[in-house]
């Protein structure tokens, strides 16, 4: 037990050190790299907290997609980096900010130390009702059955975020393709990796989705994996991001929400409530929602990384 605590202590020190470095390092590009390392270390912390589903999500989104997004953006803003750095506040504002951060941290630390014992938990209720869903993974049961409305609204939030990003499109590019046209050597190393890896990634993503019913995994993790594979192929110049005016694209983006809503409304006459599943059909319906959502999430996340359209569709 003490050895485990020693390991956790070292992990915490490492996480905090990388976090401090990410905040204080001069170069923003380095900060983006630091955030990727931070996300992966945090995923380890989630494993130590017995939340493997959250660990997979953190590693994929925190360590992966957020860092890609940040690194791309810092490269584009590099020209203004020196001017921005000159605007760093003096010692007094910095001290005040440190006081603010320190007191909030101290307050939260007191709350952590004063958490009630025994801890309140909903685990018994979940354990009591999980049999009705036919699922083995309690987190998936919460996401898609007990708190399905949260997950449905979250899918809507993702689409809204993408619409908001797209509204930033300059008028002349509306309906065009997001991101620059990536020109890389078709015989180069990046293209080589992008030819070999994505098919393997597709198999792994379907696996992560399929085991998500009973083991850690699910549509978010699988969708992020697919998004990463698609982005790899795009950035290696092997394929292009589709113009955002395409009908099929818009169809795929809302497919998950549409299937979710359709099954939800079907629950009103069949099972007596919105988003209730008819007895015995819970698992297949949940798998159907997850499969459709995985595709929508994959396309939404990848397009969020790519940003608003930047060039016209030269078809």
């Amino acid at each position: 037990m003490n050895l485990a605590l020693l390991f956790d202590g070292m992990l915490v020190v490492l996480i905090l050190a990388v976090a401090v470095w990410t905040v204080t390092v001069r170069d923003s590009f380095a900060a983006g790299i630091g955030y990727a390392v931070y996300g992966l270390l945090l995923a380890l912390a989630w494993v130590r907290l017995a939340a493997v589903d959250a660990a997979l999500t953190e590693a994929a989104i925190g360590g992966g997609l957020t860092s890609v997004l940040m690194i791309r953006a810092t490269v584009r803003l590099r020209a203004g980096e020196a001017a921005a750095r000159a605007a760093t506040p003096g010692p007094l504002p910095r001290l005040l900010a440190a006081l603010l951060g320190g007191s909030v941290a101290a307050g939260l630390a007191l709350v952590v130390l004063a958490l009630p014992d025994p801890a309140p938990t909903l685990a018994p209720q979940v354990a009591e009702h999980i049999a009705t869903t036919g699922l083995g993974n309690a987190v998936t049961a919460v996401l898609l059955s007990f708190r399905a409305i949260d997950t449905l609204l979250e899918a809507v939030v993702l689409i809204y975020a993408l619409i908001a990003v797209w509204t930033l499109t300059p008028d002349r590019f509306w309906g065009g393709r997001p991101g620059p046209k990536y020109e890389t050597d078709p015989n180069g190393m990046l293209a080589y990796l992008a030819r070999l890896l994505p098919p393997i990634g597709i198999v792994v993503a379907v696996y992560v989705l399929w085991v998500g019913a009973d083991l850690p995994g699910g549509k978010f993790q699988a969708g992020t994996l697919l998004a990463a594979m698609w982005l790899l192929a795009i950035m290696a110049g092997l394929t292009e991001a589709p113009p955002i005016s395409r009908r099929w694209l818009r169809g795929v983006l809302v497919a998950g929400t549409v299937v979710f809503l359709a099954i939800g409304f079907a629950g009103v006459p069949l099972a007596g409530a919105f988003l209730a599943y008819p007895e015995g059909f819970a698992k297949p319906l949940i798998v159907a929602i997850e499969a459709a959502s995985m595709l929508s999430i994959a396309f939404t996340l990848a397009l969020l990384v790519l940003g608003p359209p930047e060039r016209r569709d030269q078809a």
Binding site: M189, L190, Y192, L193, L196, L197, I200
Partner: peptide, 16 residues
């Protein structure tokens, strides 16, 4: 094998 593929290709990209 997947780690091999990733580290071998990534190291070449960084090396360039």
């Amino acid at each position: 094998l997947l780690v091999l593929l990733a580290s071998a290709t990534a190291s070449q990209l960084i090396a360039r």
